[in-house]
């Protein structure tokens, strides 16, 4: 007859998918939108002080996944905004945003120099840039490359937290 016993089983360290595999090619954004977002990410959250930036943290790859799962209005903020940024670049410089020099690209980001308001701007480019500023920074500073390199994480509580499992 089996008796009740405490089972001592060694807990094994597990990796997450991002440790072991590359993200699939962009599934939500078009190639042009993705290239624009990648370039923008590098400008919004660059590598600094030995810590990775958006490019190294693969923030654009992560946002392709996150935004692709998001409600329609959030998707539209990104797609319309990325298209508007690309169009503004072609109009002003005759080439796509991803091909611009850093200084050229920065001239198209003037909405980020406006004071923040609770209601997001009506202009699709400004609205997108405001969203991307926060999302790219979080996607970078809450990534494993950033935190394991010594970054504290963008969350106010830091890089770790008490996770609530699903309740019975």
């Amino acid at each position: 007859m089996q008796t009740s016993q405490t089972m001592e089983i060694q807990k094994l360290d597990m990796a997450v998918g991002e440790d072991a595999a590359e993200a699939a090619a962009p599934r939500f954004f078009s190639a042009a939108q993705f290239a624009t977002l990648q370039k923008l990410g590098g400008i919004l959250t660059p590598a600094r002080n030995g810590l990775p930036g958006a490019l190294e943290a693969q923030a654009a790859e992560f946002l392709d996944f996150l935004i692709g799962q998001s409600p329609a209005d959030r998707k539209q903020v990104y797609t319309k905004g990325l298209d508007a940024l690309q169009a503004a670049s072609v109009k002003k410089f005759g080439k796509g945003f991803a091909q611009l020099e850093q200084a050229q690209a920065a001239t198209l980001l003037s909405p980020l120099r406006q004071a923040w308001t609770y209601e997001p701007p009506a202009d699709p480019l400004a609205r997108f840039l405001w969203a991307a500023k926060t999302d790219v920074r979080n996607a970078t500073m809450q990534s494993k490359p950033y935190i394991t390199a010594g970054g504290g994480g963008a969350r106010r509580q830091g890089a770790t937290g008490l996770y609530w499992h699903e309740l019975d």
Binding site: N138, S143, G153, R155, A159, T160, L162, H165
Partner: peptide, 16 residues
Amino acid sequence: RARSLKNVYDLPYRGM
């Protein structure tokens, strides 16, 4: 039992 300490990057959506 309901809670455990986790790194934000171990969450499926990077805490977002």
